[in-house]
């Protein structure tokens, strides 16, 4: 069986990046030229990050990210580009996710109500049975 490839996210092509120049372009001209970032930092002056990844789905196996491009554009306090760097999957780290969840205080509806809550549907195949 053949693998299925799927792309997610968006990274500006080298041609678009070429006409951005360090020290001159600001956040607005960057947004106009290459579009908004897929992710950004927490603070006001933090950088803009464009991420595009390519996934390989193969049969029953877990989908694997086979290629990821990250373009990081960092700005100084004045909002002018200080650095444009491009890096890939190898810089990423495999991080074990903590399984703890902050519980939301609202009690869900009881198990039984969930189980029988949505009874009432009567479908043709029960009536006729499939011979």
């Amino acid at each position: 069986c053949s693998p299925i490839y799927r792309n997610h996210g968006y990274v500006p092509t080298d041609r678009d990046l070429a006409d951005l120049s360090v020290g001159i372009d600001t956040r607005d001209t960057v947004a106009a030229a290459v579009g908004r970032p897929s992710a950004a930092g927490l603070l006001k002056e933090s950088g803009w990050y464009y991420v595009q990844s390519r996934w390989r789905h193969y049969g029953a196996f877990e989908p694997r990210e086979i290629d990821r491009q990250v373009v990081a554009i960092s700005f100084n306090d004045g909002g002018v580009i200080t650095n444009i760097e491009r890096f890939g999957l190898e810089e990423g780290r495999v991080v074990p996710l903590s399984r703890r969840v902050t519980d939301s205080n609202i009690a869900g509806i009881s198990f039984l109500r969930q189980l029988f809550g949505s009874v009432g549907n009567f479908t043709a195949d029960q009536l006729l049975g499939d011979d």
Partner: peptide, 17 residues
């Protein structure tokens, strides 16, 4: 956010978070 930034390799953003 720390987990996500680290997974992308954005060390300094992870550190600010």
């Amino acid at each position: 956010l720390v987990e996500a930034y680290l997974s992308l390799g954005l060390e300094d953003e992870a550190r600010t978070a």
